[in-house]
């Protein structure tokens, strides 16, 4: 593979490389196309088709699924989902950012341990982690018995089956997804930049606000997407911790596909979540570009 090879030798090398591409990347890419891309395209196309009588679709083009989604009932569910996912994201940022910052300040051998401890619960069973909060927040559960025994409240509080419980459950599920990208972003900030700011007379807080925070904004934005999008699509937490009162767009999608059997409408709802994903990534990319541009200027 040196440049001194003759033209036919290079041709053979190129053919071999193409063959190697097909052998190595081919099966995986084919699999992803068949079982990810094509399924997503099917859902996309279903958004424009008419519902079949027993689930599935009829091949009649329509935009009625979109107008149905604009009905006030569904808009309020969408709004509710955005609100709950938004509150969850803000809380994840408020707790996750300083946690990630603290981890970067640990000695390096503790840093790995600290990070593993952050991701460990994330790899365990999601239903079990949600179930743990049913146990904790129940009227006879440990949280209430501590509150009552310490005399903080007179009678057990209704901590379960409301929006607050849903937010706590979602925060518990996705907090690690905030901490990891923020950690990676803070880790990459050149410590000399902050030192330079300090030498130029900025205080600790000023140096953080003017140097570290803007540079880590793209990482925080990635974390926000990783928390916000799955929170919106989650139907397990609202069902188990919201007690059926707190319906989110994820529950609606689940119902359209498995119970109401209106797949085209379900597809439109899923599309609305995916649009959030795309728009948020576009904002993230724009922030990243502006910061890189600013650094170069």
């Amino acid at each position: 593979m040196t440049s001194t090879q003759t033209a036919p030798g290079r041709g053979a090398a190129r053919r071999r490389a193409l063959g190697a591409r097909a052998v190595f990347a081919g099966p995986g890419l084919l699999y992803l196309t068949a079982f990810m891309t094509i399924p997503l395209l099917i859902v996309l196309s279903y958004a424009f088709l008419t519902r079949g009588r027993f689930g599935g679709v009829k091949l009649e083009l329509t935009l009625s699924n979109f107008s149905k989604a604009l009905d006030s009932t569904y808009l309020s569910i969408l709004g509710n989902s955005v609100l709950i996912a938004g509150i969850t994201t803000v809380l994840a940022l408020a707790l996750g950012y300083p946690t990630a910052y603290a981890i970067t300040r640990l000695p390096s051998r503790w840093r790995t341990v600290a990070l593993v401890l952050v991701v460990l619960p994330f790899w365990s069973n999601f239903l079990i982690r949600t179930y743990a909060w049913i146990v904790l927040l129940n009227s006879e559960g440990p949280v209430n018995s501590v509150l009552v025994n310490l005399g903080i409240v007179g009678a057990p509080l209704d901590l379960l089956y409301n929006r607050g419980a849903v937010v706590v459950g979602l925060l518990y599920a996705y907090l690690p997804l905030m901490i990891l990208p923020v950690y990676a972003a803070i880790e990459r900030v050149d410590p000399q930049l902050q030192e330079a700011a300090r030498n130029l007379g900025a205080g600790k807080i000023r140096a953080f606000l003017d140097v570290t925070l803007p540079l880590t904004l793209p990482g925080a934005m990635i974390g926000a997407i990783f928390v916000f999008v799955p929170s919106m699509g989650n139907f397990v937490v609202p069902e188990l911790l919201g007690g059926g009162k707190t319906v989110m767009v994820g529950n609606l999608i689940r119902d359209q596909f498995l119970e109401a059997r209106n797949w085209p409408f379900g597809a439109v709802l899923a599309l609305s979540v995916m649009i959030f994903l795309v728009v948020l990534f576009a904002i993230q990319a724009a922030i990243g570009r502006r910061i890189n541009g600013g650094a170069r200027a």
Partner: peptide, 14 residues
């Protein structure tokens, strides 16, 4: 990165 629900309904449809 893809939301699991999106993959789930896509595969059900497929």
């Amino acid at each position: 990165i893809l939301p699991d629900l999106a993959l789930a309904i896509g595969l059900l449809a497929l």
